[in-house]
Amino acid sequence: MDLDTVTQYRHALSRADLALQPGERIVAGGTWLFSEPQPGVTGLVDISKLPWPSVERPADGSLRIGATCTIAQLSQLSESETWPAAPLFHQCATALLASFKVWNSATVGGNICRAFAAAAMVSLAATLDATAEIWHADGTDSHQSVTSLITGNGTTNLSATDVLRSISFPAHALQARTAFRQISLANLGRSGAVLTGRRDTDDSYVFVVTAATLTPQVLRYPQRPAPQDLHDDVHALQGYYTDPMGAADWRRSVSGVLMLEVLEELS
């Protein structure tokens, strides 16, 4: 929609351009920012022209995704890459309510920073132990797990002047086998629960609940858990919530059922 309060629009071409004036907001893909009225926003700083490679493959076998990589580009990795975890990239993209047309503009970094419970790029990052690289306004950088970045349904621990630069997926996670389940009240609708799992080459397991809980919930096991234990652990997680997209008890229940399917697929 038109953001009629916006009177300035500038492209950031270097890190120095990211210093925000009062009323300015960062815009990456813009697909969320332009979908709601933004009262008080008078300027936009477009980061889409920053010279950030969308996809980098460091020598250590990890994967570095530029924050402005589109979801469409990320989803393509499922076809172009041969890591065992490659299918999870497209699967998580399909968990988004947004159509494939939105994927053409929406960015991976934007989806993570917007931090809705149903943010499927968070599901992906949390499942693969991804780390966020954050640029601070004072010129320093910091790193933290994407999981720890998310503090609630739509909130992060980033400050208004922080900029997410990249997301890195470690090699061991890319070499893991993964499984994915998603459910929503309406077929292809906004996710009510996303259940993901990972079995590393050392046969340790990671299971993640997203969309059903306010923040990503990660369960780790040194070896294959007994199904009943996993089911109980999923039920015991905190943060199942109720909104028009699903009741808390439903989210908890389907999470338990579908996580057992994830376990079975990885076994």
């Binding site: 929609m1 629009y9 815009v27 813009g30 697909t31 969320w32 332009f34 979908s35 936009l44 477009d46 889409s48 159509s99 047309k101 939105v102 053409n104 503009s105």
Partner: peptide, 13 residues
């Protein structure tokens, strides 16, 4: 050639 929702696409782009 790429389909987008033009209501959430900044015109300047």
């Amino acid at each position: 050639g790429t389909p987008v929702h033009s209501c959430i696409t900044p015109a300047i782009r």
